[in-house]
Design a protein around this nucleic acid. Structure first.
Lengths: 354, 354
DNA sequence: TTGTAGGCGTTATCAA
DNA sequence: TTGATAACGCCTACAA
């Protein structure tokens, strides 16, 4: 069992002091080239790795970010988090951070966990998913000046913090437009009860698109909790209308799957679209709105790195329209201290169902 | 911004030395009751949390375990890892550990990551998923005496390390038996090419059950890479046989889903079963074999805790038959040093498809 | 039962 | 340009 390689081991091997080794790592330019090379060779030869714990004691930074893993509620939408987590871990790694997982049963429990994680592990930041109106978690973190980013925009106007989100309205609008192109005119929407940020957003995309073609839609706007059976039930009622819709835009793949079952049951020629492009959608050929999760995760890390490392490293994004709030005609770039916010465009994946 | 609360802060507040505070935390019984209470009050009042970094420097233990998050290959099976991760995080938390995520593109890359994680973060242990014959990762870790557990048994006999697995053969056997009970006699198997531990195991459960009822099955045993279209293709060929099977047992939900599509296409009355009980199976009413993932994760933590903390805390399992290798009629329990191995029984979830 | 001393590996400060 | 020193917060000996 080889002894642990510390900075002292490297220093001895290279015939320099520990401080010089540290300098080679952190400010190579102030070390004479010859010395630098000698130290680098020693580091490589010994396979030296700085101890994060010791470093943390000096710097107060753990290079750790925490994210909650949820208990796969519905089951269908679980894979969204899964893909996001993968992207987050990858992007964080590139930026020199590691991802730590935690679970929580409710908001109070989650806040207690923050306290724990912060106190014991000195976490550098949190990534929150699925925030909603009046989220107590963001308030708690903001109050304590703990860096965080949310995947999901801030639905309460006054709360100002960095977030990354996917433009849900654009997604349902794309789905609806696609259906219009296919010749559909009576297009219904099956979504969640009004009041949730995400749900209202997705509904809005459908509503604006149908009203743009001058269709009367109030009768075709339905609300239900999420779920397969719920989607099926609501779809049945829509198909029972005197003049039933010819297409159904759904706020989730779960609802869409249920709706599709209702449609098949009646052997009706009705198009259906979902949201999230989950594996289920791929499996059954459901047209669905796909979120750029890897990109969203990378953006989260970018924003965090900006807060933590102060500026630097903009990630080369695709068709993202970043949106920094109110900045005047002055120096280029958003004014410092302004939380950056990123809204990504989703993509419609067309399959047999629509 | 409140100053950081250290053990010294608590000591001052309680009017004792730092050591006494440490004793209250680690060996409360040696501290006088009155003093102990005073210290505890101070800890609570100040919200003191021992710094993991400082503790780690002294003890060499990080209380961190690492697990790899995969890029959701197929999509359908991604949710298995998801649920496992959740269970792992929860169980680890109870045992005083935290879960750190990492990604890797291939085995070499993964081993480099081990080196990194071990060197920098001083990880206490790794949880590996999806091991197979001649896994280089387990060899690397074992060689360096790094504690680890695999979710998935050791398929190479000589490798002896703690693992947790689900009895795949028992799963397909249960599915096959169920079909027999339903009156089926010609039961085919759609599985992966021979050579993979998991695949062979699942095939074995089907094979033993059909041979038990004296059915000739060689013609009905099919091999294909995993995937929906692959399952569909193979199922079509089976249905084209002169005497087609009346039931299809599949090694995964992906294959089963494809098979189901082939069956419906022909409007055939053929039962289909899958494996993993993924959300897709729930969604489309596919009979499938469900793995006890939360329990498997808890067992992983148990085994790890045993290695790390030396014995203690057996988790109250359900119908698990633990299996400690060769131990003689001597003291109760497995001989120390023997890697414990846990094989869990899966459950068949019967739905419309079978 | 309680207190004191030292060191884990790193980096910031300052002196050489 | 390089080196010595101190300090981060904790825990384990040992001394009182």
């Amino acid at each position: 069992m080889a002894q642990k390689v510390t900075i002292a081991t490297v220093a001895r091997q290279a015939g320099v002091s520990r401080q010089t080794v540290s300098n080679v790592i952190h400010s190579p330019e102030i070390v004479r080239e010859e010395t630098r090379e000698r130290v680098r060779e020693a580091i490589a030869a010994l396979g030296y790795r700085a101890s994060q714990a010791a470093r943390q004691m000096r710097t107060g930074r753990s290079q750790l970010i925490a994210v909650r893993i949820e208990p796969t509620r519905d089951g269908i939408n679980g894979s969204v988090l899964d893909r996001f987590l993968h992207g987050l871990t990858e992007a964080a790694g590139v930026a020199g951070y590691r991802v730590m997982l935690y679970t929580a049963t409710d908001a109070a429990n989650e806040i207690a966990t923050y306290d724990d994680l912060l106190g014991a592990y000195d976490l550098d930041a949190f990534v929150l998913t699925g925030t909603d109106h009046g989220d107590v978690r963001t308030a708690w973190l903001a109050e304590r000046k703990v860096p965080f980013v949310t995947f999901g925009r801030s639905w309460d106007a006054p709360e100002r913090y960095p977030w990354v989100d996917v433009d849900g309205a654009a997604g349902t609008a794309a789905a609806t437009s696609h259906l219009v192109t296919q010749g559909h005119r009576r297009i219904a929407f099956i979504g969640w009860p009004a009041g949730s940020g995400v749900g209202d957003d997705r509904r809005a995309g459908w509503a604006s698109t149908v009203s743009a073609i001058g269709a009367d839609a109030t009768e075709l706007d339905r609300e239900t909790p999420d779920g397969i059976t719920q989607g099926e039930e609501v779809a049945r009622r829509l198909l029972d209308l005197p003049t039933p819709p010819t297409a159904l835009v759904c706020a989730s793949d779960s609802l869409a799957l249920g709706a599709l079952q209702a449609v098949r049951e009646r052997a009706a020629q009705v198009a259906v679209t979902g949201f999230d492009d989950t594996p289920v959608a791929q499996a059954i050929g459901l047209t669905s709105v796909s979120q750029p999760l890897a990109e969203a995760a990378a953006s989260c890390v970018d924003l965090l790195a900006e807060v933590l490392d102060g500026g630097g490293s903009a990630h080369s994004g695709g068709s993202t329209h970043a949106d920094a709030s109110a900045h005047f005609g002055g120096p280029p770039g958003p004014p410092p201290g302004t939380p950056a916010q990123v809204l990504l465009a989703p993509a419609l994946v067309v399959r047999r169902s629509g």
